[in-house]
Design a protein around this nucleic acid. Structure first.
Lengths: 231, 231
DNA sequence: CTCAAAAATTGAACTTGCTCAATTTTTTTA
DNA sequence: TAAAAAAATTGAGCAAGTTCAATTTTTGAG
């Protein structure tokens, strides 16, 4: 992680997220004034679960992975974060620490917005608050689905979900699987690395997928969706 | 579930939640105008996961249990809801259906507020939105803890958490355990009913708790907290 | 390009917690 | 209050998925 040069700052200062579009000029300036631009290198932690959270991160470019950590060096991957998305919104209120960690899968241009700046604008501008609330909500909904999957599905179904989820990034990011280790994939499904490997091989034998070193090519979506349902 | 008489309505029309306190008179009126008062009988569903959600529920009196449902008649209990709390806020935006079910543990006086009324006020009144956002946030934080527990802890720890959680209602609602079956308790910990029974007996043998038919008395909080940590 | 480290792979043994079935206790209904 | 239904209890066997250890493959550094 390093601070950005002037060039970088000009590049990323373009506030395109829909909730910023609705802002009156003075509020936009407030965000501009309070934000800090940072470049996180591949492998850097953007947020670390449990650390003090005084800001929210807005991803301008790059991909990051969001995950919760358990005690014994176990973790569970929640989502892959794309440009235009926020990290840390769940820590905007009441609780002072990040509820999850996040890690740069590629170099990430990010800016940090102070929580106070956001809540101040929300207080003054209902439309802004509503827009942010909508974003926040859709993240929470994903959390419900994640919880439901973790609780009620077993290995095969969760793993099929995981492959379909990661595959959904492939159009925009063709090398997405190259960025993920077997452990990363396993942690999306909440299973052990060894189990993930065994499932991959088994799905390949059944003709659902093709494995080329790190890349995974889904060859039978219907079958995989079927496994996801039944699982 | 039945509609309320005039008397009931007068009784429950007292909008005491902090986020309502901050409302200007006209917005309060808007909520008053749009809401419907309902009495849910013990055992009634206040919300049913997957059904269309055009309103948010505000609990005036009574206790309810919030849970997510899986496919094969499995469910997982998220929380016990007290008077002054909302149900269905997670469905306020984007998604059209309730993400969880809820069930009246006792008779519940509830009023229903149309989503449109809420979003309209949020749009006009940033302070109201901020206040609602804070509530919503604290629910989401609980969701993270729930997810973490479900993913990383095993039976013993989750079950200790469950007992401590339910016990935290005992001061205000001394008969809280009488309202819950073994299956209800098991579903808070995400384990089978049989496992819950076995754990209860085992905790009793170890001197952590006393069992009197349905009531459970925690006799060694420290030990239970220890199990919660290790688990 | 070569070597060392990290990641992926595989199978066997093991653990956790579930399911099933039988029995007892409690609650509800007539 | 008695009978029926529902809930709680118990133990045995079972299944899902983990852990461990050994091996192979891939990646990264110099």
């Amino acid at each position: 992680m390093k601070s950005l040069s002037e060039n970088d700052i000009e590049y990323i200062c373009d506030l395109q997220a829909p909730c910023f579009q609705a802002l009156p000029a003075e509020a936009l300036e407030l965000i501009r004034a309070s934000k800090t631009q940072v470049l996180f290198r591949k492998g850097d932690n953007l947020t670390k679960q449990g650390t003090f959270a005084s800001y929210v991160l807005f991803i301008v470019s790059g991909l990051a992975i969001q995950y919760v950590e358990g005690d014994t060096n176990k973790s569970f991957n929640l989502a892959i974060i794309r440009p235009g998305e926020f990290i840390g919104m769940f820590s905007l209120f009441s609780n002072k620490t990040f509820k999850y960690s996040s890690l740069a899968l590629t170099d990430c241009h990010v800016f940090l917005v102070e929580k106070e700046a956001i809540t101040k604008i929300m207080n003054e501008n209902g439309t802004f608050g509503l827009s942010l609330f909508r974003r926040y909500s859709s993240q929470t909904e994903n959390l419900f689905d994640t919880l439901g999957n973790a609780l009620f599905k077993q290995m095969n179904g969760r793993f099929a979900d995981t492959l379909l989820y990661i595959d959904s990034f492939k159009e925009e990011y063709p090398d997405i699987f190259q960025l993920l280790s077997r452990k990363d994939i396993a942690d999306f499904a909440g299973i052990s690395t060894e189990s993930a490997v065994k499932l991959l091989k088994s799905l390949e034998r059944e003709g659902c997928i093709q494995l080329n070193t790190k890349d995974i090519l889904i060859t039978d979506y219907e079958k995989l969706r079927g496994i996801s349902k039944v699982g």
